[in-house]
Nucleic acid binder design. Structure first.
Length: 154
DNA sequence: GCCAACGTTGGC
DNA sequence: GCCAACGTTGGC
């Protein structure tokens, strides 16, 4: 079992949007970074836990928990859609460069655990999220970090 | 809106 | 394979 953090801009797709989605599930489409894609394609597995992170908003931080619910990596169909912002001319139906997973809502924190709060705890000082220059939209998290952050939300 | 820290592209 | 130019991310 692995643990992850996935970033989303809440004005585009928030934890509430996930909660109210059909079956409380969503495809994580639109990732166009190879490292992030490799995590989804090669390392994420069903039942992995996900911290749902809100970025580029008033209070950036962790808004809740989700879980990987797809059995296999899925081709990202938005790469083939000419009308999509995520269209990739180098991808085709036969050979799509981009894969994604599906995630399912687990819970919404009563209060967002703010980025600012995360920075206060020495327990989390090694978190990749908090390292300088980090821009990845999908980031591995350790079990200890995951559980510590969930405990902060209570 | 600024800007640091990347990642990507493409000419050479 | 190098690297300059450009685009993007995301906190502030």
């Amino acid at each position: 079992m692995n643990y992850w953090l996935m970033k989303s801009e809440p004005h585009k797709f928030s934890i509430d949007d996930l909660k109210t989605s059909e079956e409380q599930k969503t495809h994580w489409d639109g990732v166009r970074n190879y490292q992030a894609r490799n995590f989804m394609r090669d390392e994420m597995a069903k039942k992995d836990k996900v911290l749902f992170y809100h970025s580029s908003c008033d209070i950036p931080g962790i808004a809740g928990v989700a879980e990987v619910c797809s059995d296999e990596p899925l081709d990202d169909f938005t790469a083939l859609d000419k009308k999509s912002n995520y269209f990739d001319p180098k991808s085709s139906k036969e050979k799509n460069r981009w894969q994604m997973v599906q995630i399912k809502f687990k819970k919404k924190f009563k209060q967002v655990v703010a980025l600012q709060t995360l920075k206060e705890f020495p327990e989390l000082s090694e978190m990749r999220l908090l390292q300088k220059g980090n821009r990845l939209s999908i980031i591995p998290v350790s079990k200890d970090e995951f559980e510590f952050i969930v405990s902060l939300s209570k």
